[in-house]
Design a protein around this nucleic acid. Sequence first.
DNA 1: GATAAAATTGAGCGATCGCTCAAATTGTTG
DNA 2: CAACAATTTGAGCGATCGCTCAATTTTATC
Lengths: 204, 204
Amino acid sequence: MPRATLHQRHDSLERALQLFWRKGFHATSLKDLERALDMRPGSIYATFGSKDRLFQEALERYARLALAELERTLNAHDSPLTGLAAYLRRLGGLCDQELPNRACMLVKSLLELGEREQAAWRKAEELLAGMEKRFIDRFSAAQQVGELDSRLDPSRLGRRLQAEVIGLRAFAQRDVDSAVVHDLAEDMALSLEALRIDAVSFSQ
Amino acid sequence: MPRATLHQRHDSLERALQLFWRKGFHATSLKDLERALDMRPGSIYATFGSKDRLFQEALERYARLALAELERTLNAHDSPLTGLAAYLRRLGGLCDQELPNRACMLVKSLLELGEREQAAWRKAEELLAGMEKRFIDRFSAAQQVGELDSRLDPSRLGRRLQAEVIGLRAFAQRDVDSAVVHDLAEDMALSLEALRIDAVSFSQ
DNA sequence: GATAAAATTGAGCGATCGCTCAAATTGTTG
DNA sequence: CAACAATTTGAGCGATCGCTCAATTTTATC
C-alpha cells in the first residue's frame, strides 16, 4: 500500500511545515513534532532522517506551495504588471487569513539560521533566489509586451519587488490593524502599477 | 567605584547585544554568553536577572543606538525627505560594514520570538513602533516645510518606509553582492525623493 | 590590618535537548 | 497459520539547556 504511506508522509510533512513556520527551527522541539505528527521519535527518524533534514523538506514544500500560489495569481491576469500588483494586494489580506505566521517562512529561516545550520540556510537562500527569478521574469515579460519602459532593469525591479514583499510580510508580523496592512499592500501595488508605460501618473 | 562598575555593565551589555544580534535568542546559549562576557553564570544572573531580561536590555540598547544613528543622519540634512533618503542610502552600505548581522535585530526578534517569550516580543514591537513614529514625524515635517503633497498620509508613508527598510535589510541578509544591495537602496531612495513636490519626475 | 559588605565563582541541579536501538507490532507472503 | 520483512514503539542515552547558591574572593570603611 504505497499510496497510503505516501499520503501519510505528505500529511506529516504538512504538519511539520505548519509547526516550523509558526515557531521557527530552534523553538520547535522533537517533542512538539512527535505531538503534531502523532509519531514516535523512531518513526520520525526512519522517515525523515533528522530534525534538520525534516526542516529542509518543510522549507522545500513551503516554497513549492508559495510559488504555485504566485503562479496562480500571475496566470489570472494577462498583464504581467497587473499580475504582480494583484499578488501584492493578495498579501494585503495576510492578517485576515489564519496562517501559522504572517512572515515568509523562507525569510524567517534566513534570519534565524546560522552557520550551524548551513545546509538549511543555503536551502532557504536558494528557494528565495527562485522566487526572485520569477519576479524578474515577469518584469522582462512586461517589457516584451510593451507595458514597461525597456530602459529599466528587470533584475533591479524584481529584487525591489522581493524586498517589498519581504518588508510587507515582516511588517504584518507586527501588532497592527488588518487595515494598515491592506493600505500598505495597496500603496506598494499602486507604485508597481505606476511603472506601466501608458499609465496616468499619480503621486501615490 | 560605581563608574567602573557601570562601564563594565555597559561593556557586557554591548557584548551580549552583538551575540544576540548575530545568533538570535534561542541559538545563543548561556555558555556563549559566559564566554563573550567573560563572566560566570552567577555574575550574569546577579547583574541581569535572566537570559530573557538580558535579551530585553540588549534590544533596548540596540534600538537606542539605531534611533541615535537615524537621528544623526536626519539632522545632517535640512530637508526631511533628503534626510530619509540619505538614511536609505546609508543602509545600502550594509554589506560593506562588519556587523553582527545585516538584518535589523528588532525584526529578527519579531520573527523569531513566540508566545513563550511574550515580554521580549512586546519590547521589540514597542521599539519598532518608536522607529515608525520617527519616520511619520519626518513626513509630517516634510509637509509643513512644503516639500510633500499635503494630501498624502504621513502615517501611510512612514509605515511604507519602515516596510522598505525592513525589506532592504532582510534582503541584504541573502547571499548577494554588495552592489546589488547598494542598487536596491538607491532605487528605494529615488522613489522616496520622487515624492518631493517640486521634483522633476523620472520613472526610476 | 581587621571587619563587614559586595561581588564573583563554579560545581552541579533538574529539565529538556536531539537522537538511538532492542523489542514489539504490523503487514506481506506462501 | 507460519514465517519473514517492514514498520513502529518508547525507554532512555549522553549532551546541553537555563539557572542556583554555598563558598570564595574582592572591595570599601575605619
